[in-house]
């Protein structure tokens, strides 16, 4: 979980200890530390900002109420993300038919190091497509993909977080990759022709 561990572990341990001793400020610091990973997970799972905000808030509320049940042998981030993932899965199962607005898929926060407007438009468009495809996966497959590609989790960490067996994680990832590739191919039939050329390059005339 490279991206999550960018936080200072000493801070986490200190504030976690404070929170476990009933200090509300300690928990507020944990929220500051983990709001982004939790929110990002909720956003990738649910597909819009409003639901993501609600799910992230609920995640921290549940964590606060069950803090005494937290097993110190586990990474706090994994425990927290596990709560978030299960809450999102529950929400998705409650609202099977969930409409995702195109505006919500706008991914307004995408930063672009190169000031190339053409590239920016293409990149945004392609990333919207990827997010749409992601939202078409089943809840658990989606969670597995998000943990693997956004949170750099290992199979073991995903299995611990989603309460799945190792083989189930592998088969879900395998199925999700295949499904995403097939859907991508359906939307971009020219993919194979463009192999070998950089994605933002203009086609060679």
């Amino acid at each position: 979980m490279a991206r999550v561990e960018e936080k200072n572990p000493a801070d986490e341990v200190y504030w976690l200890e404070q929170a476990l001793h009933g200090d509300a400020d300690g928990f507020m610091h944990l929220i500051e530390l983990y709001q982004k990973p939790v929110y990002n997970l909720c956003y990738r799972m649910l597909g819009n900002r409003e639901d993501a905000e609600d799910a992230a808030q609920e995640t921290f509320l549940r964590a606060y109420h069950h803090l005494q049940k937290y097993d110190r042998n586990r990474a706090f981030a994994t425990w927290l993300l596990s709560i978030a993932a299960h809450h999102c899965i529950d929400q998705l199962r409650k609202n099977r038919v969930h409409l995702v607005s195109i505006e919500d898929l706008g991914l307004g926060d995408i930063s672009d190091p190169l000031p190339n407007p053409e590239r920016k438009v293409v990149q945004k468009d392609e990333q919207q497509k990827v997010q749409k495809i992601l939202l078409q996966l089943s809840e658990l497959d989606r969670a597995a993909i998000i943990f693997y590609y956004w949170y750099d989790m290992t199979y073991e960490e995903i299995s611990e977080t989603l309460h799945l067996s190792l083989s189930s994680v592998k088969s879900r990832l395998h199925r999700a990759r295949k499904e995403m590739a097939i859907r991508w191919l359906e939307q971009n039939p020219s993919t194979r022709i463009e192999v070998g050329r950089k994605r933002y390059e203009t086609p060679v005339i």
């Binding site: 991206r3 982004k36 990973p37 990002n40 905000e53 990149q123 990333q127 993909i145 191919l185 194979r192």
Partner: peptide
């Protein structure tokens, strides 16, 4: 070949996506 190229594209776009912040 097509499927592999498609998956390479998808995974690359996923890795490039920034984290959403509240």
């Amino acid at each position: 070949q097509s499927l592999e190229a498609a998956w390479n594209e998808v995974s690359l776009y996923m890795e490039e996506q920034d984290w959403m912040a509240p």
